[in-house]
Design a protein around this nucleic acid. Structure first.
Lengths: 190, 190
DNA sequence: TTTTAAAGTGACACTAGTGTAAATTTAGTG
DNA sequence: CACTAAATTTACACTAGTGTCACTTTAAAA
């Protein structure tokens, strides 16, 4: 009986990602999204009542993927290699972290005016955060990472660093390698 | 003859700063700004034809202050102390760097549609960038900073790091100290 | 006190996004 | 082939920001 759908949830999520990265949260509109999907704006409203619900769903979807990868990871017994694995995982999802950060901040601001429903992607983000925190704390206990540095700050440094987008001619991998080196051992010669 | 002004350029710049930090570029409007200044929206249009011109002027003003401080700085002969001074200077203007970054990016995007006049604050930002670059390169020549790290990347790491705003209970100074320590010597125990 | 010109305001037309409801299209069913 | 119901579109009313212009206010000069 029903008519064929013109776009899938995957299409929607994919274009949501591209559009968010391109224009940012504030300029993200259903009009632009509809254009990308070659569909009318109202069609999207049939699935999502507004952009916040859509973005929240999209980010939840991505964070779940990330957490699955995280849980299934076979961690190296070597501490530095373990750190590298962790860093690479974060790096591969840097877009999602960035989007999630911005979105959470925007929701906080709206909260003051509108009582908005809890943000699930934020919770997932924090769960991931917790995983990493315990790793860092254990590293500090065994003296592998400097004890005086606050774990929260370390995590924030890592998350921020992976968002750096230099316009230079480095490949993603090269850049990741250099950043990891700085975070781990610093920019000064020993 | 003339009537007393209800607000000064300083008021305008100050509220521009506060509002930009509070709501961000996209949600920055003359209506909100006018409210803060207890003045009508149209009054601001007498001085600035749109928000881009205002923000550009404000950032130019800030960057000029920064460059002056930079030029008048008495640099320590100790390399690490020199680095610390540089870091502190950047840190003290972290808001401005952040705002300048966002603004430049937004202008780039608009450029595609509207042919926009050159962005002076961007030029100043890049001049400051150049100053730092030469310091880093000289440090690399003398082997004080690791030679293999691209200078551009180092600068970007520093600029990004100063923007980190952890919600923890650290003071600005403490946070700056820890971040500097990580960038300089890394988070791992030697 | 009158005049003047800068400073500030109110109102208008325009643009763009939001959310909704009625109308239309379409793939499969009987 | 007509019917059905989901999928989609069109049209509308509403909200909010933008830039402009005629008009009003006001501090000081004459």
């Amino acid at each position: 009986m029903p008519r064929k759908k013109k776009f899938t949830v995957e299409d929607l999520y994919h274009q949501t990602h591209l559009l968010l990265m391109k224009v940012g949260y504030d300029q993200f509109t259903f009009s632009l999204l509809a254009d990308e999907l070659s569909v009318s704006r109202a069609a999207i409203y049939k699935y999502y009542s507004n952009k916040d619900v859509l973005i929240s769903d999209y980010l939840t979807f991505e964070m779940k993927k990330l957490l699955e990868e995280f849980d299934q990871m076979e961690w190296s017994s070597d501490r530095e290699e373990h750190f590298n694995q962790l860093f690479e995982l974060i790096f591969n999802y840097s877009d999602v972290h960035q989007l999630s950060n911005v979105f959470t901040q925007k929701m906080k601001m709206k909260h003051e005016k509108i009582q908005f429903k809890e943000n699930i992607s934020k919770e997932l983000h924090e769960r991931f955060f917790g995983h990493i925190q315990s790793f860092i704390l254990s590293c500090q206990e065994t003296g592998f990472i400097k004890k005086e540095l606050p774990a929260n700050l370390l995590i924030n440094m890592i998350f921020h660093s992976v968002m750096i987008n230099t316009s230079s001619d480095l490949t993603q991998k090269e850049r990741a390698g250099y950043i990891r080196e700085i975070l781990a051992h610093g920019m000064f010669q020993k």
